[in-house]
Amino acid sequence: MKSGSNLEKVLKAGHFAVCTEIGPPKSCDAEVIKRHSETLNGYADAYNVTDNQTAIVRLSSLAASSILVTQGLDPVLQMTCRDRNRIGLQSDLLGAAALGIKNVLCLTGDHQSFGNHPEAKNVYDLDSIQLIHTVRQMRDEGRFLCGEEMKVRPAMFIGCVANPFADPFEFRAIRLEKKVAAGADFVQTQAILDMERFERFMEKVRERGLHERTYILAGLMPIKSARMARYMQKNVAGMMVSEEICQRLEKAEEVKAEAVELVVEQIHQVRQIKGVAGVHLMAVAWEEIIPMIVQKAGLYPRPECDES
């Protein structure tokens, strides 16, 4: 065991893992986080806590993850490289370990021009791969990036993201391999809204044997409305939405029911793909739908894993 986190245990035991996401509020209202954690408790093995997603200032990921720990949930602390340099990142990582957080997801982070402080200075002292490398070095070698030793090592299950829908496509598997080589224990993909491209990506991943070196969780996203699907299809960088999904939502009488149906189908599809170890469900601003999806997909209840 690298970290002893619930997510690690589930994956190690060979279960098909389920992760989901909790976005901290744009205020210091801890109740919001608690409410979400109550709704979702028991429906996933671990819960990502986003880090000022799309560069909009929110309650800190570290604090929110800590609240989840007190609620008995296994948080995945998201850390972006946009806002902190290597000093801040390492420091927060130590803090997270001290607060009982056992999973960390290393990301580059959306550019600040998307957020509510587009005039901010960004940091990007490290990139996501270097951050993975840093966390692994701290955990496995007990050394800071500079080489200095530390007394107690942070036991972290290290995650990274992969976006099969960004370009150049050929490079995406190479990039994932770099992340795995740097120390990524698990991978969560960008929301899959174009299954065909994801399958091609997985082919490349298997060619490189990456599915045997890391756990790959397929990212899935229920989309509330056809308009939103179209918007993402046209306007969001790094996302691809298949025509089929757009049309199914457009034609559906009950759009929300159709959205659930779609995700459940996708879960069954990705389970068939060799090398997929679980799913990561991202229901942005629609967290309450997660229990229904998990149940309908036959993934409820979640396995209980003992210490081993």
């Binding site: 959306d110 550019h111 791969i129 829908f165 490079f171």
Partner: peptide, 26 residues
Amino acid sequence: CAKNLLNGPCGGSQEGMCEIGNGVEC
């Protein structure tokens, strides 16, 4: 690169363009 990355394009690179837009190439 808008994020001065050193290990390859981030997930916002699409069709050769950077996620920040404004016609910036990745």
